[in-house]
């Protein structure tokens, strides 16, 4: 089928359909094993930054000159969500080159813009493929696309469709409603970002383990067993902080205080209470130091979760950071001092 020397047909393309601007690849609208594997890899943060498809014009079903044109980004997770949502429809899908970034972030960065969309309109000869002059843009692309600039650049009118691709079929049949226009942050949506938070957060954790190892060298007794038992308290404190800040925090977000660092600290405190139960032999300053570190780490990770939410403003996040970071820094220092002091006081035998 349409083999050209040196080319390979992408697995998400099932056929080619003729149009006035040449042959257009027709998309599969169901996931293959390769799609599922790629989704898992991207969700784990393995090749999140290079998970792209080629920009351009694609067909879903058997679209004609009157069919709707839906616009999306070339991040494959986004592209997949849109094409699967459009199963059973006859529409055109115009994919903009956002360098593998989702629509919202690409809008902020300027790649999902009037210039970016019109570049693909002109490159693909869309004006010859369809007889109308309407593009359905994702609403979350409106922070990058100025509708009137798009009309000037390529003659197409921008219509802002629903926030979520899942709503596209209902939108195509019945038009827009309020529920389609509002962002959500459901339990499922919050849970979906946990793996990537854990995988991309490994560097500070390794750093914390290393610092804990250095601090554990100091204390009563220099035997390997003594150092190991001291390090174990700090390492478990670190893992508890990671669990509270990166797993519990997203799941419990709606029930936490609105200040992210405070919510993370509250969860971290609850997690730190496990330390005296696990290490009943350790001196209390050691436990207090490790526990305070659990609170600090969970608080910090909570603060970082602002980047995964769809409701924090840069002004709000910056204000919270300016208040929280000095406190967190002081607490980190205090935690280290308590930990080492406790280790000199003994009790880690």
């Amino acid at each position: 089928m349409d083999d050209l020397p040196g080319y390979r047909i992408e697995h998400y393309v099932e056929a080619f359909v003729p149009s006035a601007a040449g042959r257009i690849p027709r998309l599969r609208t169901g996931p293959t094993a390769l799609d599922r594997l790629g989704t898992c890899r991207a969700r784990l943060g393995l090749d999140r930054n290079h998970y792209t498809v080629n920009p351009g014009l694609y067909a879903v079903g058997a679209p004609g000159p009157d069919s709707a044109v839906v616009v999306t980004a070339n991040y494959k997770l986004t592209f997949d969500t849109v094409r699967f949502a459009l199963a059973g429809r006859d529409v055109w899908l115009l994919v903009v080159d956002t360098r593998g970034i989702n629509v919202w972030c690409a809008g902020g960065k300027g790649t999902f813009s009037a210039a970016g969309v019109s570049e693909q309109v002109n490159k693909t000869g869309l004006d010859r493929v369809v007889s109308h002059r309407r593009l359905i843009l994702p609403q979350l692309g409106a922070n990058g696309v100025r509708a009137r600039d798009l009309r000037e650049a390529c003659g197409f009118e921008a219509v802002f469709g629903p926030v979520r691709a899942e709503d596209l079929p209902r939108y195509l049949d019945h038009g827009i409603d309020e529920a389609m226009r509002e962002v959500t942050f459901t339990l499922r949506e919050r849970a979906a970002v946990i793996p990537v938070e854990l995988v991309l957060g490994w560097k500070p954790i390794v750093g914390a383990f290393a610092v804990a190892a250095i601090l554990s060298l100091m204390g009563q007794g220099f035997s390997l067993a003594a150092i190991w038992s001291r390090w174990l308290v700090a390492a478990v404190g670190t893992l508890l902080g990671l669990f509270c800040g990166s797993v519990l925090f997203p799941l419990l977000l709606p029930r936490l205080p609105r200040t992210f660092s405070l919510g993370g600290a509250v969860l971290g405190l609850a997690g730190a209470l496990a330390l005296p139960l696990l290490f009943s032999h350790a001196a209390w300053p050691t436990l207090a130091g490790a526990g305070l570190w659990t609170v600090v780490l969970s608080s910090w990770l909570g603060l970082n979760f602002t980047g995964s939410t769809p409701y924090t403003s840069p002004s709000g996040v910056e204000r919270e950071m300016r208040r929280a970071i000095p406190v967190l820094a002081a607490c980190t220092l205090l935690a280290a001092i308590l930990f080492v002091a406790g280790n000199f006081a003994g009790g880690t035998a």
């Binding site: 603060l303 924090t312 840069p314 002004s315 996040v317 950071m321």
Partner: peptide, 12 residues
């Protein structure tokens, strides 16, 4: 509005 991303990592 002064636009931007409300993301601690980015602000750092």
């Amino acid at each position: 509005v002064t636009p931007g991303v409300g993301c601690a990592q980015y602000i750092i």
